[in-house]
Write a protein that binds this DNA or RNA. Structure first.
Lengths: 303, 303
DNA sequence: AAGTTGTTTTTTATGGATAAAGTTCATGCT
DNA sequence: AGCATGAACTTTATCCATAAAAAACAACTT
């Protein structure tokens, strides 16, 4: 059966809005709520019904207003707000990156389905989607081949990344002064400086910043294939570093400095400076990945 | 139910082998046949059973040998040797490229499933696979958006293609004399010259040659992401030109000459010459596509 | 007429079943 | 032992069913 994660997530959001006073007094119309929560009216109505049922909202002759205060256990647990497909993704990535899954292993849809507790269909859809990342390969009628999260993979990934980023950075610097990208860039620079001050506690915030920065660079002269490629990078890094926290603070600190130099270079609009800063940053990112890759292999042997 | 296209295709191949005398006299072992036909022994046995049943092969105390001559209607029709997934692909591409499917159209899995006579699952798997081509986009819980086979698409595609091909061509030219790629290149050059002589009747053969040529260029310094990207190009061009034959001979003739110039440039190992020849060829390919694209739009409005 | 809510219809996300194809195990023959 | 066939088992390709979510339709209200 289809999961009701959309409803549960919407319910939690609505509960939060109530708690934070965003829906004080009389509630807006179903259509208005629908717009705010980005779900269909059908789902909004389901949420409202439950809110009324739990007396978080009261309904009197067709008028809805806030009811009793929201308590913490009014929320559905997080796991129930994530669709199956996302769970499959998470479990697969864990299986692949944390287990001792070796290059050359063949992937069995049925086995994964059993292991993850889903139908084979879901596994297969995930694998098809995932195959674009260059880590697995389909052999018809037979199964999938895991090619390995190897150094080769990282090298090939970064070769393309450098090409794309140099191209985008140069085009970025050619934008007219009037372009809104410049103020966005300035804002990002500030955000970097801010983070630098609070680095002790908040170094995890870097990955969001990193993402925003690289996406901004592509924004100036969009190309769907470059965007798609950046999706791969984001995805891979997200999961890889989720389980590989060694030196995280150190790493991020260095990257922040590189970003700032890179931003300065962009602002200077000096083509050579841009190339140097861009290459420096990507080379360092590559080194970091490669280091963690070999380190990762060793530990996984002992695991 | 799963189609038995693997069996039928294997059967047809076996029948051809019998007809062409490749299996004269006593047949090889099941394992040997399995290897030759690239299917499992299970399938080989099924084929053999049917061959015996139709008396194309005779079996006498465990020994199999050729039977009556193969006739044309011993073969299964082609349509039955193509798996469902491939049919979906073909029908979808036709729907997209030939129908008057406009950019912005939303794609309905259920409707396509009915239209193509397959289960929704097959449609969905195809769409997921196809989404990497940058022409459609998924909106969760809602459906797919067709972004259109537009000029923007072609421009973005070719921007990447130029980057990749320049990179690969330069790396190609840096290969040592001893590398086997040089003789492959020479062979390809000859094939081009040959085709040029017989261009009148055989200009369709160009697309195979084109493919071989560009794949060879990538072969020297492989990168999976570049290969994957070239898959997109191959796929798109295959279907687009399948229904868009205007000026085909003219187009191919020009391309052959460009290829030859490009090959000469590679053999000269002169970096500048290579860049010029490569850019010239790709620019011309892009123009051809763009022209057919606008022409295509107009005709499809009238269709 | 435009915006509300109630109801019905359509479509997507997910699980399940099964024939075909692939793989492994068992047995027998040189 | 090493290869051939036979039989049993496992996995993939494919269809079908259904609850959840979205969309469309209808009736009502101000």
């Amino acid at each position: 059966m289809r999961t009701d994660t959309v409803y549960k997530k919407a319910f939690n959001r609505a509960a939060n809005m109530l708690r934070d006073g965003q829906l004080a007094g009389e509630l807006p119309s179903e259509n208005e709520l629908r717009r705010r929560m980005c779900v269909s009216r059908t789902t909004v109505r389901k949420v409202l019904r439950e809110l009324v049922h739990r007396e978080l909202v009261t309904e009197r002759n067709g008028l809805r207003s806030t009811g009793r205060p929201v308590s913490d256990n009014d929320h559905y647990p997080d796991a129930e707000t994530t669709p199956r497909a996302k769970h499959v993704e998470q479990q697969f990535m864990e299986w692949m990156l944390r287990g001792d899954t070796r290059p050359g292993t063949s992937i069995n849809e049925l086995e994964l389905a059993r292991q993850f507790g889903v139908a084979t269909n879901g596994i297969r859809e995930f694998l098809i989607r995932f195959s674009r990342f260059g880590l697995i390969e389909k052999r018809p009628n037979t199964g999938w081949l895991f090619k390995g999260f190897t150094e080769d993979f990282a090298l090939e990934l970064f070769e393309i990344r450098v090409m794309f980023e140099l191209r985008s950075a140069q085009l970025f610097s050619l934008q007219p002064d009037s372009s809104p990208i410049w103020s966005k860039l300035a804002a990002l620079k500030m955000a970097h400086a801010d983070l630098l001050e609070r680095i002790e506690g908040r170094f995890h915030d870097f990955s969001g910043l990193d993402n925003r920065f690289h996406r901004l660079i592509n924004e100036a002269s969009p190309n769907r294939f470059i965007d798609d490629f950046y999706d791969i990078i984001t995805f891979i890094f997200h999961y890889h570093y989720q389980w590989n926290k060694q030196d995280e603070k150190q790493r991020n600190l260095a990257a922040i400095h590189e970003h700032i130099a890179y931003i300065d270079a962009l602002e200077s609009r000096n083509s050579t400076r841009i190339e140097v800063a861009c290459r420096a940053h990507l080379a360092s990112a590559r080194e970091t990945l490669m280091r963690s890759l070999t380190g990762f292999d060793e530990t996984s042997i002992n695991a």
